[in-house]
Design a protein around this nucleic acid. Structure first.
Length: 746
DNA sequence: GAGTTTGAAACT
DNA sequence: CAGTTTCAAACTC
């Protein structure tokens, strides 16, 4: 790669090669292809936090070499080649980007179609999925921890960072971000990038020029927040299209960055919506959510925001090197972008959606349908399109619903949250859905409708955890039959404030209740009746009459066995009893248990099947967005409820890691569940213990830093919890410890 | 669809 | 921290 490109470049640029810039660019150029892909995905989330890692060539190489190389090829074939070869196309693509603002969906479709030209895109999608999954995992880490943290996926982080650096090569998107962000200073950077890209493209200068225009355009458009945002989006989209479905995630990420970048748009944004202090959080949250891709929007929202605030550099990640001021801008912009960019929202949700989708593999079928339907529902084309494609059923539905809400200008800002939340919720719920609720819903004819949570609150105003929507971090939507609902974008401030309060009380309040280490696939062989020990309820249930055989029991609802942490009486949880004893009992009990277990097994089986399908045939699982599946995996960890699917996904993502985690857990679970359970009790995270040996860290974080801890702890906890689920990713968890560090940073 | 049951969430 | 109340989902009829 390097040699040929360099040679070409060298010929044209030989004069300039002498300059350090060229040498630098040249060094970067080879990487470009790989990064390009990453950039789109991770760029927003990761790039910000871990600039340093970015430069680490090794990471880049590693990732690129393997995964990215493919993408590069594909992308290059689809995008770059097209661009380079067809100057018109390039310009058109840019134009599209500019125009894309409106028809985000359309663009996607078009772009996809264009990308389809290169079949590679689709193919890449499958592969990218894997990468994405990793990214997804990484992203969370990186976001919170910054690149440095991602011990597990240093490469991803690095890739991201690299992507930033390489951006030039990768795609226009990069330019847009940086340029928009760095009106003045980064222009050079963008140019450099451009140069890099050019080499790839072959017509370096031409591209360069073209890029510049885009940049300028962005800046100019800055006046028009939408345009700028759109551009960013479109760019991402383009990349995504070129790269394939997987890019969607990337797209999402970039958008936030774009938003931040679009300081110019601030004015417009101000008009759009003035987001008080909360806005920053939102922004951060969104970004986080984006990065996490739904893993844990809840945590992400506040925590991430806080983290970013704390670590402007991280927040600036999108900008690659944006300064703190940029962060502030970003926060501002993000808010605006949120509004302006339903697409962003969509994007963010998209991430979450992916996770959700994965989680709700079961629902995939319905998802597809929903996607179609959701698309309809979503008045916002962009969001809808994005969300639909990426989002699984639940996520999609939620997203779509929000999208509906969002249409209102007032809601505009909220929608972003909604999206994030939705995704988060969707994820959580979806995951949980694996749990009885979803099962029920899914099983029931209304699977689609159910995919979206619908509360029926009458007195809580949907501002308490009683409200499933609120608890899930999602805004209430039309389907909700709640009364005096304040859980709407219009009352975003109230919602956020309330959430903060609740989190202050209990940092884990919005964290997934059920932590699934990985596997849902508990290897039936062990004890089908028992849930995979890996999964446990954070707090444990307190059932007295339901014998943990009904959905009243959160453990049962979550499809997990009771643990020592549970204070239930007469536990007969089909997924696993508190005492760890097999669900043996009277025949009647057995029957019940068996039924439950069967259900659980069925679910698990379905999950497995789904997961397998996803893994084996991600595309098949979600014809529309195979990548979705893969991505969802990443998010899954965040989703609290994560059901078996998650594990499956996780396994797909990092089977080895998960497997190891499972092994660790399972033994303990199977034989000594108490361990798990206890840990859970002491530590909110069931998962944490295993995954994180950090256990302490998560909990401690939460408790230790009460005030900050809220954010910090919750994030950690969240991460811990959600990620832990992903326990599959022990590595990640390990890296997670870095999360705690985030709090300290503050 | 209304009413009851249940247990988490919230409150004291 | 324990006990009580509130709440909405889950469940039953």
């Amino acid at each position: 790669m390097d040699t040929p490109e360099r040679n070409q470049i060298g010929t044209s640029i030989s004069k300039f090669e002498d300059s350090p810039v060229f040498s630098y660019i040249n060094s970067l150029s080879p990487i470009k292809p790989v990064k390009s892909v990453h950039i789109t995905q991770t760029f927003n989330s990761l790039s910000f936090p871990s600039p340093p890692s970015v430069f680490t060539s090794p990471h880049v190489n590693g990732h690129k070499g393997t995964r990215f190389a493919r993408r590069q090829n594909l992308l290059d074939a689809s995008k770059t080649k097209v661009l380079s070869e067809d100057g018109h196309k390039i310009s058109s693509s840019k134009e599209v980007l500019a125009d894309s603002t409106h028809p985000y969906n359309n663009n996607i479709g078009e772009q996809q179609g264009a990308t389809d030209q290169g079949n590679s895109a689709k193919d890449t999608s499958s592969e990218p999925s894997n990468e994405q999954t990793q990214f997804a995992i990484e992203l969370p880490q990186t976001l919170k921890y910054d690149c440095g943290s991602p011990g597990y996926d240093p490469a991803p982080c690095s890739d991201e960072t690299n992507s930033l650096v390489e951006l030039p090569g990768t795609s226009e998107v990069v330019y847009v971000h940086e340029t928009s962000k760095n009106d003045s200073t980064e222009d050079e950077v963008s140019l450099e990038r451009m140069c890099l890209t050019e080499p790839k493209m072959d017509g370096t200068e031409c591209e360069w020029k073209s890029l510049d225009p885009t940049i300028r355009f962005c800046n100019a458009t800055s006046q028009l927040p939408k345009s700028s945002i759109n551009i960013g989006r479109t760019v991402h989209i383009v990349d995504a299209v070129a790269s394939g479905p997987d890019h969607d995630v990337e797209e999402v990420l970039p958008q936030p960055g774009i938003a931040t970048e679009t300081d110019q748009t601030q004015e417009n944004l101000a008009n759009v919506a003035v987001v008080p202090s909360n806005t920053n959080e939102r922004m951060d949250n969104e970004l986080v959510s984006m990065t996490y891709r739904g893993l844990r929007r809840r945590c992400l929202d506040f925590e991430m925001a806080a983290a970013r605030r704390r670590n402007p550099a991280d927040g600036s990640n999108t900008g690659s090197g944006t300064s703190q001021s940029e962060e502030s801008h970003v926060a501002k912009q993000l808010l605006p972008t949120k509004r302006s960019g339903d697409s962003q929202r969509c994007i963010l949700p998209g991430i979450g959606l992916h996770l959700n989708a994965l989680a709700t593999l079961k629902d995939y079928k319905s998802v597809e349908n929903e996607n179609l339907s959701s698309g309809r529902e979503l008045s916002l084309p962009s969001s809808a399109s994005l969300g639909q494609e990426h989002l699984p059923l639940s996520s999609i539905s939620a997203y779509s619903e929000r999208g509906l809400d969002t249409p209102d200008p007032d809601n505009g800002v909220q929608p972003a949250e909604d999206c994030s939340q939705v995704s988060a919720y969707a994820v959580n719920e979806d995951f949980n859905q694996n749990s009885p609720k979803k099962k029920r819903r899914k099983l029931e004819p209304d699977a689609e409708s159910e995919s979206c949570k619908r509360c029926n609150c009458k007195k809580s105003k949907c501002l308490k955890l009683y409200c499933e929507c609120f608890a899930a971090g999602v805004y209430c939507i039309e389907p909700c039959s709640c009364q005096d609902c304040f859980n709407k974008p219009i009352h975003e401030d109230t919602v956020l404030a309330t959430r903060k309060q609740i989190e202050s009380r209990n940092p884990l309040a919005f964290a997934p209740k059920v932590i699934r280490s990985s596997d849902s696939v508990p290897e039936v062989g062990e004890d089908p009746n028992k849930t995979p020990a890996s999964a446990r309820h954070k707090r444990g249930c307190n059932c007295k009459k339901s014998s943990c055989l009904k959905k009243y029991c959160e453990c049962y609802q979550g499809g997990v066995g009771c643990s020592i942490g549970c204070r239930c009486e007469g536990c007969k949880n089909a997924y696993g009893r508190k005492d760890g004893s097999a669900p043996v009992g009277t025949e009647a009990e057995r029957e019940e248990e068996t039924e439950a277990s069967e259900k659980g097994l069925m679910e698990k089986a379905s999950r497995k099947a789904v997961s397998q399908n996803n893994e084996d045939h991600p595309d098949s699982a979600l014809p529309t967005t195979p990548l979705r599946l893969t991505r969802p995996l990443i998010p899954l960890p965040f989703s609290s409820k994560g059901k078996p699917p998650r594990s499956s996904f996780i396994t797909t993502i990092s089977a080895s890691a998960l497997y190891t985690a499972q092994k660790l857990e399972k033994p303990s679970i199977l034989r000594s569940r108490p361990r798990f359970e206890k840990p859970f009790q002491s530590v909110p995270d069931d998962e944490m213990p295993e995954l994180l040996r950090d256990d302490g860290s998560p909990i401690t974080c939460i408790k230790t830093s009460s005030p900050n801890s809220k954010r910090i702890s919750s994030p950690n906890c969240e991460f811990g919890s959600s990620p832990t689920r992903r326990s599959g990713r022990k590595l990640i968890l390990q890296s997670i410890p870095s999360f705690p560090s985030l709090t300290p940073h503050h």
